[in-house]
Design a protein around this nucleic acid. Structure first.
Lengths: 218, 218
DNA sequence: CCAAAAGTGTTATGCTTACACCCATGC
DNA sequence: GCATGGGTGTAAGCATAACACTTTTGG
């Protein structure tokens, strides 16, 4: 690095892949674009990184602005910067992904957004509807999430504080898109020692009530 | 994203963690800083992203400029962008890591570099000598490399085209910083089906000559 | 008493680990 | 013939995968 001042400076944004589980599906928050380019298409929420703000802070701020939640799982994913990914100019975007319980969010439309909504990730309806390179970003986020739940405890982040093991198992099945064996699942999850058994049950209709659990925060 | 033109634009660079194996150690390429800030300290090679250049291209170009190699393993690592990481201004850096056979490289000093050299990564000599947040970047790169060699075939990238299994095993031991069982290692590597047995041996002194192998490019 | 989800153990299989001796060569 | 690294197989332990019935509740 020699001298700074004469170098071209691209725009830098953060884009967010915000996942939740709702209606028995993995959902991602998308915003309908109100302006060109890609008017009428759907885009991941995002925004510019302020000059005095860390990248994680920018992502957390966007998260707060878009869905009104703080303090949820948020991790840097990858940085996308192909020239031409945004027809308006050189925009480098640091993508993050976040996991939240759907009930904690309140979706707030962004200023230039005609609409914001949850979209089922694996629904073919979404194909061809994404703006910019956001299909690529979303695919990468799904790939990371799938890997991550196999060897970490990140699945809890999609559920409320108190949950049943069946609910957690369903989260895994929805993300992995394959059935999971009930007994092996319980053995594995309980064996991780990250989950606390509560002295409460939830009665959810005409069945045996399920025991509630919560995640042990470290 | 509303209007572009009125947003602050940080500088964007790529930084490279270039690994090689030499003198029975994992080495990283560092450049002695000739100017303030951090004059006299050692920094990872890096440079600005040109306005019409993809991030991967910028990283590959730096690699070519610094060590004169092309077409080696190069992967995006993480993006570092804390305000204050560079005292000269807001600089967001996309870190990459690369793996190369030491013999393929010819180290070329950068324009403002007093010196460039390989440093042993696990040598305490390196402590406190790194400029900017480059200690953090290096630590993260080592962590990624360690994970990656456990479940991929990336180890080959640090060796010449033809190599012996003992050499490959030593690469693993050096990276993981622990001994590896010879028979289990050979079983695992050969079982991956990514390596071709050559009809050649290398005689390396007063011992039984070792059979040579090469990596099957996909 | 019926329907529906909750809950619970054992066996088989495959993968990972531990471990010790003979082989081929140069000097 | 000796020193040195190259090369080889088997048994034990551990983790993963497959699999079916009983329990508890509301209606």
């Amino acid at each position: 690095m020699s001298e700074h001042s004469d170098y071209p400076r691209p725009f830098v944004t953060v884009d967010l892949v915000i996942f939740t589980i709702a209606e028995d599906a993995l959902q991602v928050l998308l915003i309908e674009r109100g302006n060109e380019p890609f008017k009428g298409k759907w885009a991941l929420p995002g925004g510019f990184v302020e000059i005095d703000e860390a990248l994680d802070e920018a992502a957390a701020r966007e998260l707060q602005e878009e869905v009104g939640v703080t303090n949820i799982f948020l991790e840097q994913l990858y940085t996308f910067g192909d020239p031409g990914r945004d027809p308006r100019g050189r925009v480098i975007s640091i993508a993050y992904y976040a996991l939240t319980d759907a009930m904690r969010t309140r979706i707030v439309a962004a200023s230039d957004a005609a609409d914001a909504r949850w979209y089922p990730v694996f629904d073919p309806e979404i194909d061809g509807q994404l703006a910019f390179d956001h299909r690529q970003i979303l695919d990468y986020a799904v790939w990371r999430l799938r890997n991550k739940i196999e060897w970490t405890t990140v699945g809890y982040e999609l559920l409320p504080v108190k949950f049943t093991l069946s609910e957690l198992q369903r989260v895994y099945e929805i993300i992995l898109q394959r059935p999971v064996d009930k007994r092996n699942f319980r053995k594995k999850i309980l064996g991780q020692g990250q989950i606390r058994e509560l002295n409460e049950t939830r009665s959810d209709g005409a069945h045996r009530p399920a025991r509630l659990y919560s995640f042990k925060k470290p």
